[in-house]
């Protein structure tokens, strides 16, 4: 007997009254999944003075939008947000629930999942429906890809980073939708109290919008080698990124990590220096237009995943490359 399929859900995260790009991307993917399942796409938006964002979300494909609009919901606070979402999910019984892999999403999603006694996968790099119409959640691991499914419990939950899915195209058949206002619970004394939220400017060129990215890996060997990777990025006017080891070594901040548990980026030109090409990193950069890798091991998996490969030791090669770049730039200035 066919079970009735609940709606596909997307959590819409906002910051300062703007919908985060990752949430739009998930609306786009959610629309696809809903169509494939023959169900509706619903979204949940919590914030202060955010009802006006509804139009955009409807145009992106949302059939029904639940809005909690209250000054108490201005910032993410788990003790406010989670019960509202859990209560609504118990009522609506969504089939699938997608959440952005943001700091807030990564805390909120497992809180909701555990309360609903359901499973959740982390930082998926793709989603699809399998032969049993189960949500196949794909993550890189052990040098390959593994698929995770949640056969019994609902919703099937997953977090996805910005950049994995494209923004939704121009409005299709779902031009308008239904807006449902959520009752906001009375403010009760909470066990945790949000004292302040501080926004910081990121130092250096941001990875998100960079046209050129230089990413370094363990092949930099030491702090001095890493310095050369930094100089290369400087010379090219590129944003600097990294795989996991340089972050663990403390050569670079965590927010510069590219990949599954870091950032997903789509530059025009990417140079990977001294990195082996572990999938956890490469999934973050697959969208790049042109990719070059420099590594001393000709058998490194990275050479199967880029457009141009160059075999050399990065500590020895980079000084030569940097000199050639400077020479080229001088020639250009002179001419």
């Amino acid at each position: 007997m066919a079970r009735e399929i609940g709606p596909v859900w997307v959590f819409v995260e906002q910051c300062g009254g703007n919908v985060l790009p990752v949430s739009y991307e998930l609306v786009g993917k959610g629309r696809e999944l809903a169509d494939e399942l023959g169900t509706s796409l619903e979204a949940v938006l919590l914030g202060d003075s955010v009802t006006g964002l509804a139009g955009e979300l409807f145009r992106g494909g949302v059939d029904r939008l639940y809005v909690g609009d209250d000054v108490l919901l201005k910032y993410y606070q788990p003790e406010m947000y989670v019960p509202m979402i859990v209560d609504l999910a118990r009522e609506r019984k969504p089939e699938i629930f997608l959440v952005g892999s943001t700091a807030c999403g990564k805390e909120l999603a497992p809180l909701v999942a555990a309360r609903l006694k359901t499973g959740i996968s982390a930082h998926c790099i793709d989603l699809a429906l399998d032969g049993n119409r189960l949500l196949e959640q794909i993550i890189p691991a052990y040098g390959g890809l593994i698929s995770i499914v949640c056969p019994e419990m609902r919703p099937q939950m997953a977090t996805i980073a910005k950049g994995v899915f494209a923004l939704p195209g121009p409005a299709g058949r779902h031009g308008t939708g239904e807006l449902v206002e959520l009752a906001v619970p009375q403010a009760e004394p909470m066990k945790t109290e949000l004292l302040e939220v501080v926004y910081e400017e990121a130092a250096g060129l941001t990875l998100d919008s960079a046209a050129t990215i230089v990413a370094g890996g363990a092949g930099a060997k030491d702090a001095a080698g890493w310095r050369m990777v930094e100089v290369l990025a400087d010379e090219l006017g590129a944003a600097l990124g990294a795989t996991r080891p340089p972050v663990d070594e403390g050569w670079i901040e965590l927010d510069r990590m590219i990949g599954q548990s870091g950032k997903m980026v789509t530059p025009d030109f990417y140079i990977g220096v001294g990195l082996s090409g572990e999938l956890q990193h490469m999934v973050g950069i697959v969208g790049a237009k042109l990719m070059v890798a420099i590594n001393n091991d000709p058998k490194a998996p990275v050479f199967d995943q880029v457009d141009y490969g160059l075999v050399d030791d990065c500590q020895e090669f980079l000084p030569v490359l940097i000199a050639k770049i400077r020479q080229f730039k001088q020639g250009k200035t002179a001419a």
Binding site: S121, L134, P140, L145, S147, V149, C150, M291, D304, D307
Partner: peptide, 15 residues
């Protein structure tokens, strides 16, 4: 465990 690993494969690059 609500989730299970349903498959594993080796990734292939288009480049």
């Amino acid at each position: 465990s609500p989730t299970i690993i349903s498959g594993m494969r080796v990734a292939e690059s288009t480049r």
